[in-house]
Amino acid sequence: MRTRREILAGGLACTVIVTAAVPAALAQSTAARTASPASPVADQRRVKALLERDVYSSDNVEIGEIEDLILDAEGRVETAVIELEGRLGFTEKHVAVPFSQLRYDGTQRRFQLQMSREEVRALPAFHLRD
């Protein structure tokens, strides 16, 4: 039968091993999560590169440009604010659409909205506040 001293010594040895191993594991997992690439990877886009890009309707008519992007609580892009252009290129109004309805065309560097020009113009105005 093991003595109390042997049991305590064994428990202490386990504690030392676990205590030494946990910080090293945590440091490695933290480093892996916080490591960032030197530049955006192929499937990533910079927000700055998306702002002011032209937006075309589903009937292939230029309707305006991306004015702003709105994030949800987790930091994902949820809504795009589009500046609708009227005659002579002046701003008619801003509208908000779900970002999921936009498709980015990298070759033409513009967005395609899954709505017709009439549907977009019928949307209520979105008021930007700074």
Rank of each mutant, 00 (worst) to 15 (best):
31 A>L: 10
4 R>M: 02
115 M>V: 04
109 R>Q: 09
30 T>L: 09
56 Y>N: 11
3 T>K: 00
37 P>V: 01
115 M>I: 11
87 R>I: 14
60 N>Q: 09
64 G>A: 12
95 V>R: 05
42 A>R: 09
114 Q>N: 12
98 P>G: 08
3 T>I: 09
9 A>N: 14
75 G>Y: 15
78 E>L: 01
130 D>S: 11
110 R>S: 13
46 R>P: 03
109 R>H: 10
8 L>R: 02
88 L>V: 04
79 T>V: 10
71 L>H: 11
107 T>F: 02
113 L>H: 00
75 G>D: 05
24 A>E: 14
51 L>I: 13
60 N>G: 04
94 H>Y: 15
74 E>F: 08
72 D>S: 01
107 T>K: 00
111 F>M: 11
114 Q>T: 09
111 F>C: 06
29 S>F: 13
105 D>G: 06
2 R>I: 00
39 S>F: 01
93 K>H: 04
65 E>Y: 07
107 T>V: 14
130 D>G: 09
10 G>C: 12
116 S>M: 07
123 L>R: 00
10 G>H: 10
126 F>C: 13
111 F>G: 06
78 E>W: 03
58 S>H: 13
29 S>V: 15
122 A>G: 09
122 A>E: 12
44 Q>N: 13
32 A>L: 09
50 L>R: 06
53 R>F: 07
35 A>Q: 05
6 E>G: 01
114 Q>G: 08
61 V>G: 13
122 A>R: 15
110 R>E: 15
34 T>S: 04
113 L>W: 08
51 L>A: 02
63 I>D: 06
14 C>I: 15
85 E>R: 06
33 R>G: 00
108 Q>E: 14
98 P>R: 13
90 F>H: 01
71 L>F: 15
83 E>S: 06
96 A>T: 13
3 T>V: 04
124 P>K: 08
81 V>G: 00
103 R>Y: 12
30 T>Q: 07
48 K>S: 07
83 E>N: 11
30 T>P: 02
109 R>N: 09
119 E>H: 03
67 E>N: 03
109 R>K: 13
63 I>T: 03
75 G>C: 13
87 R>Y: 14
94 H>N: 03
94 H>P: 03
25 A>H: 07
125 A>Y: 11
